[in-house]
Amino acid sequence: MDHADLSVELCGLHLKNPVIAASGTFGFGAEYAKLYDLSILGGISCKGLTLAPREGNPPTRLTGTAYGMLNAVGLQNPGIEVFLQDVLPVMKTYGTAIIANVAGSSVEDYAEITAKLAGSGVDMIELNISCPNVHAGGVPFGTDPAVIEEVTRRARQNAGVPLMVKLTPNVTSIADCAKAAEQGGADAVSLINTFTGMAIDPVTRRMVIKNKTAGYSGPAVKPLAVRMVYQAARAVGIPVVGMGGIMTPADVVEFMLAGATAVMVGTANLLDPFALPIIIDGLQRFCVENGIETLRSLTGAVRED
């Protein structure tokens, strides 16, 4: 065997391979399209979209740490209308699956933004429910299973395409959250979003990130993410898309063995702009070297003997 089949099926979508660019680290693809052909990707999850344009948080927004990255970009985006009119037509030319990542500050926001995306040509919608719920004192939607179920149900009614709910890891039971999304009608769950972190400069004694708290991602979180993907995959019958600290082809295999149907790669793009093509090439090599004919056969295939 000199060539493995890397393709996967996700909610009826055929992906060339399981590697999807994670939301917020890839913009809308334009910057990376200058570096390589994006049609090699399994898909792209775009920067989080909101109904109205958002300027995001004041600087400083981001910093590297010893083993990961902290960010508080604050959902800066041009808004759903500009996305539909100017951005999506360009993304459709990239020859890969386009996932619209959306966020809101009320259940109604999610229902409205998914309605706007229905029939737009996006292949899938991903609900980012890590944002604060203004009607619940700023508590993130994604930390309460009852709210997860409600927000999913309201969005599901409007979405004409497969709906994926992106879970936050800042919870006690990821399994309960995954189940709530499934109950609400989600076609898939993706996880993990970032862990809430903080950094303080010991010399200036100031917060490094202006927003004080920031999302922690990158290689440091990988073992936590693998555990959560494993727990979520055992709890639900819908596909799980795994992410958190993926840097290498072996990391992709690890997430698939834990139960992921596909994966997303985020922070690695910021460390190496060619991370995705390198990982996809390496996956092909990994399969050939290990006699794996179809990569999708690895989903959930962890041995527990």
Binding site: G24, P58, R61, L62, G64, N71, V73, Q76, N269, L270
Partner: peptide, 17 residues
């Protein structure tokens, strides 16, 4: 000057006003 992520314009990490 600002702390940077991608350096390419994609991550919106290096904001200035």
């Amino acid at each position: 000057e600002e702390r940077m992520g991608c350096g390419l314009g994609a991550c919106l990490g290096c904001a200035c006003e």
